[in-house]
Design a protein around this nucleic acid. Sequence first.
DNA 1: AAAGCCTCCAACCGCCTGAAG
DNA 2: CCTTCAGGCGGTTGGAGGCTT
Length: 291
Amino acid sequence: MGRTPCCDKKDLKKGPWGPEEDEILINYIKEQGHGSWRSLPKLAGLRRCGKSCRLRWTNYLRPDIKRGPFTVDEEKLVIQLHAILGNRWAAIAAQLPGRTDNEIKNLWNTHLKKRLLCMGLDPLKHEPFTHCGPTTAPRSYSTTRHMAQWESARLEAEARLSKGSLFFNSPPPLVKPNPDYFLRLWNSEVGESFRNMNGEAKINCRSPISSSSMKCGSVSGVTVDVCPNMAGSSSTSTTARNQIEDAIDASFSSFSNESEDSSDTALQLLLDFPINIDMCFLEDDTTWLQC
DNA sequence: AAAGCCTCCAACCGCCTGAAG
DNA sequence: CCTTCAGGCGGTTGGAGGCTT
């Protein structure tokens, strides 16, 4: 029953790859494609297990891998995506062409995590430590607040999705929320707005619906707007908000029937919060280097 | 000069999920 | 339906090289 064992582990080499092994693997994959990783080492004449070959190829030998240090923009992107996706390195890597999950994981563990810690942010939650005293510079306060806002948006959206799933989908069986809905959101125009914003750019969806301002997305026919500043967020229209929440509810209903709608739902959920993240600290080494 | 410490990152380990038998 | 495996993923490790004392 079942399959035959992948490979007997005796006589298999472990540890760092040599140049000859790399060459064999590259040449084989160029000519044959990797096919089944399980059978590749034997066919290619390598004394490695398939898993090791796959790892070596995907993390190091692949021709489309971008070597060299991460740019500031890439680091920003990693932090932003980590705030949304958490430690889903593969998902984050998918948004950075040429970078591997391993590379991003290493970047996070060796650089970015420390920087966030230095800025008084919990790298897991992207929010300030509760015991954090007023020892950071004013600019750090701003960064901290922005990161916390982003995380708040994410957490509440997740909570609402959970609530929605329970409300609309039991019984019959719960609809599994699309695990990549934040990723899809990130890839939407909203994500682009977020990525492109510079300093004070904002995404605010508490403003009146269907206004003439720039449209950034829609859910169930409800238009969501990008506003030029944060002023609108403090003058939330209850009616408008109710309309948005109705749209969310409507989305949840259709969500149970059509999984593709989940991205729109998540989009709306996340858009329901003002976002204002300033990550200038990445460009200003002096701040975190003083830690 | 050298010992000790630190940082970085390639590679391994173990777990999970979906597919094969 | 159950067992086993391949592939994929995130967490962790260990060695090489750099830095400090």
